[in-house]
């Protein structure tokens, strides 16, 4: 494991901590897209099927369980917790996320490395993760007030993807990692989707202003 990979995973973990902090202590999920959160549950469920078939390390297994558990927990809070669910910005969370699932299924059936259940589902999870942030970004654009925790959450999620790109560059150069078009291109697309958000996040941070995305 290289430093970029570890930092990427830790940033991912931290993003979830920040979101849980908002949900559990502020008791609010305002500005958080339930659709994006549901897509992440599907991403982790389809990607981590190899929990049952292959062992990599204690770290790998533990992180997979944490991502699965927390993503399901977050969706539970947003849907069923009697206080939290009332703060959900339902009317603004309008992105047609079924379309993203359909698109990823079709793409995974067409473009994959091997045609077996685990490989196609794994590929599907990469395509879906690449676009899963879209409902969240659309919701942010509609939000008049983006609170600090929500902004930080999305920033950390984007930082995690950017660090994974550095991790691939490192593995390619230092560990004889072969070309892996499917995860790399999906990862590049995923990171590129954050470009606009990064720009406004950093700008607001530099000017010490409240984060606001232009509509």
């Amino acid at each position: 494991m290289n430093l970029f990979r570890l930092l990427g995973d830790m940033t991912h973990l931290l993003s979830i901590v920040v979101l849980l902090l908002k949900i559990r202590t502020v008791k609010s999920c305002a500005g958080i897209s339930l659709k994006t959160q549901e897509l992440y549950v599907i991403v982790f469920l389809t990607r981590y099927l190899d929990l049952f078939t292959k062992y990599y390390s204690v770290y790998n297994t533990a992180m997979k369980l944490v991502f699965l558990g927390t993503s399901i927990g977050i969706v539970w809070y947003m849907r069923y917790h009697k206080v939290v669910k009332q703060t959900y910005s339902k009317d603004e969370d309008t992105f047609k996320h079924y379309f993203l699932i359909l698109l990823s299924i079709i793409l995974a059936l067409l473009i994959h490395r091997a045609f077996d259940v685990i490989e196609v589902l794994w590929t599907f999870s990469l395509y879906l993760e690449a676009v899963a942030i879209l409902p969240q970004l659309v919701l942010l654009q509609k939000s008049r007030n983006i609170d600090t925790l929500t902004g930080d959450y999305v920033f950390l999620l984007g930082a995690y993807r950017a660090l994974y790109i550095l991790n691939w560059v490192y593995r390619f150069l230092m560990e004889n990692h072969k070309f892996r078009w499917i995860p790399w291109i999906s990862g590049l697309v995923q990171t590129a989707l954050y470009a606009d958000f990064f720009y406004y996040y950093i700008k607001s941070w530099k000017n010490r202003e409240k984060l606001k995305l232009p509509a």
């Binding site: 990979r5 995973d9 991912h12 190899d50 292959k54 990599y56 790998n60 992180m63 997979k64 991502f67 794994w122 994974y164 991790n167 593995r171 990692h177 072969k178 892996r180 995860p183």
Partner: peptide, 10 residues
Amino acid sequence: KEQPQSHDEL
């Protein structure tokens, strides 16, 4: 054989 190179990522 070389498959785990990206499957070991999260």
